Simulated assay, not measured.
Amino acid sequence: MDLARPDLAPRSVSFGPLTIAYDARVLTPRPWTVLQAEWARELLAEAPPGPVLELCSGAGQIGLLTVHGTGRRLVCVDVDPVACGYAAANARAAGRGDLVEVRQVALDGLPRDEVYPLIVADPPWVRTDQTGCFPADPVLAIDGGVDGLRVARECVAAVDRHLHAEGSALLQLGSVEEARRLRDELPPTLELVDVRAEAGCGLVLLLERP
């Protein structure tokens, strides 16, 4: 830790039954995103065998809560080395160090032959011109590009490459308008099946194969 930067001191927050560590360089885990993990757990109960994939994992809280209490393996993917470090540390703290693989790679960096029965993604979805409205949040973790959907589109492409034929993907977005625009851009190999929302916070899209 940089002793000249007290804001980089590790912090922790409860996320369901888990305690998640992070610091100011990583997006603070939002309590309402437990919704995504709980929905993922519902889907996981009926999902085909195989590991869960978490895209834009940050500190790993959504993926870790998804697989909590199960024997499922988890692969966390993020481009931020600090976030990846916390995801690995949080996996160890949750007693899952041997069941979680953390990869610091771009969303198109996964081997093409990897297939996952469940994919969860919490991409940045704030428009670039609005990131200044959230000074406490790391820009890398919230900047979704000009229209807020740049990273979400990359997630959809990754889902299309790696989702099992009978699998499910849960993608978090910031607004109904974003959801409508992304729905209209989906490839024919994916469809929007359902949406769940937390009032005033965001929403989660369920994508599956047609």
Rank of each mutant, 00 (worst) to 15 (best):
V79D: 14
D80V: 07
G63H: 03
D80G: 13
A87W: 02
C76H: 07
G60C: 05
G58I: 09
V75M: 09
A83S: 13
G63I: 09
L53W: 08
D80N: 15
V100R: 00
A91D: 02
L53K: 06
P51M: 10
N90D: 00
G85P: 04
E46Y: 13
P48S: 13
G97Y: 04
I62C: 10
D98V: 11
V67K: 01
P51A: 15
V75F: 06
V77H: 02
R72E: 04
V100M: 03
I62G: 05
A87T: 01
R96M: 15
G58W: 03
R92G: 13
A89R: 11
V79L: 14
A45K: 10
A93S: 11
T70E: 01
A83G: 06
L44Y: 06
C56R: 04
G97K: 06
A47H: 08
P81S: 01
G97L: 02
P81M: 09
V75A: 11
P49W: 12
L55Y: 11
P49Y: 07
A83C: 11
Y86R: 02
E46P: 11
V82H: 02
P48C: 11
A59T: 02
C84V: 13
E46C: 15
S57Y: 05
V75C: 12
A83Q: 12
C76I: 10
P48D: 14
P81C: 06
A89F: 10
A59Q: 01
L64V: 12
R72M: 06
D98C: 06
G85Y: 07
Y86Q: 10
L44D: 09
V52K: 06
G95R: 04
V100Y: 01
V100N: 01
V67M: 06
L55H: 08
L44P: 06
L44G: 02
A91Y: 00
A94L: 00
Y86V: 11
Y86S: 01
V79F: 12
L99F: 08
A89H: 12
A94D: 00
R73V: 12
R72W: 08
L74N: 02
V52A: 09
A89E: 08
R96L: 15
A93T: 07
R92N: 14
C56L: 05
G97W: 02
G60L: 05
G60E: 01
A94P: 05
P49L: 13
C56H: 09
D78N: 05
